[in-house]
C-alpha cells in the first residue's frame, strides 16, 4: 500500500500478506532504516544531555510518529538529510519534556507546531472502543484512508472493491457506524452536545 501523498515515496506494509506494489520502501523498511541511520545521532544527543538509552528510545519513537504523520500529510517529503530532521524533532521533544522553555529547540522547517500537550501522548483509550465496535475491516479501511492517507484508488485495490467509488461508499458506511456508536454513548451526557 503506497502512502497517500504523491511525494511520500514509501509503501505501507502493515499487513504481512499485502503486496508490495512498487520498488519503493515499505513502512517496515522505512522504520528500520530510520533506526539504523538516525538513532545513533539521537542517542549521542540524549547521552550528552545526561539521558538514558530508554529515554532515547522513547523520544525516538515519538519522533518517528511525528515524522511519519508529516510525510503522509504531505507536509514534508522524505528528506535526504533525514537524520538531521529527526534529530531536530527529538531535540525539540527533549526540550519540551524537561521544560527548557528558555532554550526551547526550534522545530525543523516544515514541521507544524506541536500543541501545548504532547502531540504523541497515548490517545484516549476510550475513543478506540468506538472503532473496535465497527469491525476489523472497517478499522483497517478507516485507518488506511484517514491516518495513512492512501488514495481511494489504492484503497479499492487493497480492499478488493470494484472501484474507488465503491470504496468511498464503504468508507462512509464505516464512518457512520462509528459516529452512531459515539452518539449513542454520548446521549447520556446531554450537556456534551450543548
Amino acid at each position: 500500500m503506497i502512502f497517500g501523498h504523491p511525494d511520500a515515496h514509501i509503501v505501507m506494509n502493515t499487513d504481512i500478506n499485502s503486496t508490495i506494489e512498487t520498488t519503493t520502501e515499505t513502512r517496515e523498511e522505512l522504520i528500520t532504516r530510520l533506526y539504523e541511520t538516525c538513532f545513533p545521532p539521537v542517542a549521542r544527543f540524549i547521552r550528552k544531555k545526561g539521558g538514558t538509552l530508554e529515554e532515547a528510545k522513547d523520544l525516538f519513537q515519538d519522533g518517528i510518529v511525528i515524522y511519519y504523520e508529516q510525510v503522509v500529510k504531505g507536509q514534508t517529503t522524505i528528506q535526504s538529510d533525514e537524520s538531521q530532521y529527526l534529530l531536530g524533532i527529538v531535540r525539540h521533544l527533549w526540550s519540551r519534556r524537561f521544560n527548557e522553555i528558555k532554550n526551547l529547540e526550534p522545530l525543523p522547517p516544515g514541521v507544524i507546531a506541536l500543541g501545548n500537550e504532547k502531540q504523541v501522548d497515548p490517545c484516549i483509550k476510550a475513543l478506540s472502543k468506538f472503532l473496535l465496535q465497527s469491525g476489523q475491516k472497517c478499522m483497517a479501511l478507516l485507518q488506511a484512508f484517514y491516518y495513512d492517507k492512501i488514495s481511494m484508488d489504492q484503497m479499492a485495490k487493497k480492499f478488493g472493491f470494484a472501484s474507488a467509488r465503491s470504496a468511498t461508499v464503504q468508507k462512509f458506511k464505516c464512518l457512520e457506524k462509528i459516529r452512531d456508536n459515539v452518539k449513542k454513548s454520548l446521549m447520556s451526557y446531554e450537556d456534551f452536545f450543548e
Partner: peptide, 13 residues
C-alpha cells in the same frame, strides 16, 4: 470524535 478515534487507532498501530 470518530475522526479522533481513528487517529488514535492509527497512531497506536
Amino acid at each position: 470524535l470518530a475522526y479522533d478515534a481513528i487517529h488514535c487507532y492509527g497512531q497506536d498501530q
